[in-house]
């Protein structure tokens, strides 16, 4: 469903070093990255801040074109077929919202229906189903600006699923949620994956998400794939550690020397 082959992405950063002199520096946000996500898988995508996760997601969704290599998502080259791809995938950025601030939630969904050309009957059925599962009923008519973070996030997940995408890309969907909301969100995602067969790629810093949801974990550091395997394989990298946080922290620490470089990359 997602196929990434030897992908690299470089950014050129220009910096003033003198009155007129400028320094050009090439930063490799992602280099020689290859991985595959099969249909129906639930894969976690981990990495420290600035490791290249967001860059990867932007390339997978077609916002950013890779500098080298080849990407296929749902059978399409994202950068070339961005619009066609948008109709096949759903994307949620936990820190941003697709919803319209001043409009009732329901109206945002209606706009998305037109945007994705979802037929009216299918839309109704889908929205009813999601309303039930995510208990949106009580705030469907509330303007988005008045929603709590948990409500807004449920609204955003719904917005990403209205056109019934085959692939769902989630960028920190549980960030800032309380334990109850988080549990509800996880329960929903698991159900979506198990019962509907939606392929999910999830980036998160919450190890609970990873433990409770993912079949497989990929860990990126310094723009390269540093680990790939099941949760048990992940634990096996540091058997002496008891918590998954510590295991992952160890893996992150291995790539630590380039911490300074990492910061520049976060831009």
């Amino acid at each position: 469903m997602i196929d990434v082959q030897e992908v690299g992405r470089t950014f050129t950063i220009r910096r003033r070093t003198g009155l007129l002199r400028r320094e050009r520096r090439v930063v490799h946000a992602v280099q020689n990255l290859s991985f595959t996500v099969r249909a129906g898988e639930f894969v976690g995508y981990l990495g420290p801040n600035g490791a290249g996760k967001s860059t990867t997601i932007k390339m997978l969704t077609g916002i950013l074109a890779p500098s080298s290599g080849r990407i296929q998502v749902a059978g399409l080259d994202p950068a070339r077929r961005r619009t066609a791809l948008a109709r096949r995938i759903g994307v949620v950025f936990g820190q941003r919202t697709t919803l319209w601030w001043d409009l009732p939630l329901r109206d945002s969904f209606e706009l998305i229906r037109h945007l994705y050309k979802v037929d009216r009957v299918a839309f109704r059925r889908r929205l009813d189903e999601l309303t039930e599962l995510l208990t949106l009923g009580e705030f469907l008519r509330t303007p988005v600006r008045q929603l709590s973070l948990g409500q807004r996030m449920r609204g955003d997940i719904t917005a990403a699923l209205l056109h019934d995408p085959r692939v769902l890309v989630l960028d920190e969907p549980t960030i800032g949620l309380d334990v109850v909301s988080k549990a509800a969100m996880r329960g929903f995602l698991r159900k979506l994956n198990a019962e509907r067969g939606t392929t999910v790629l999830l980036t998160t810093h919450d190890m609970g998400d990873i433990e409770k949801l993912c079949d497989r974990v990929m860990l990126i550091d310094n723009g390269r794939l540093a680990f790939e395997g099941g949760i048990d394989d992940l634990r096996a990298t540091a058997p002496e550690e008891t918590s998954i946080e510590d295991v992952v922290a160890r893996l992150y620490a291995r790539g630590a020397p380039a911490a300074g470089q990492r910061q520049a990359r976060g831009q």
Partner: peptide
């Protein structure tokens, strides 16, 4: 995981015929 307030709703995802 406990479903929190959601658990009273016995919602299930129905496998729809493809929409869109």
């Amino acid at each position: 995981v406990a479903h929190g307030p959601r658990s009273r709703h016995d919602g299930t995802l129905v496998r729809n015929p493809p929409c869109a």
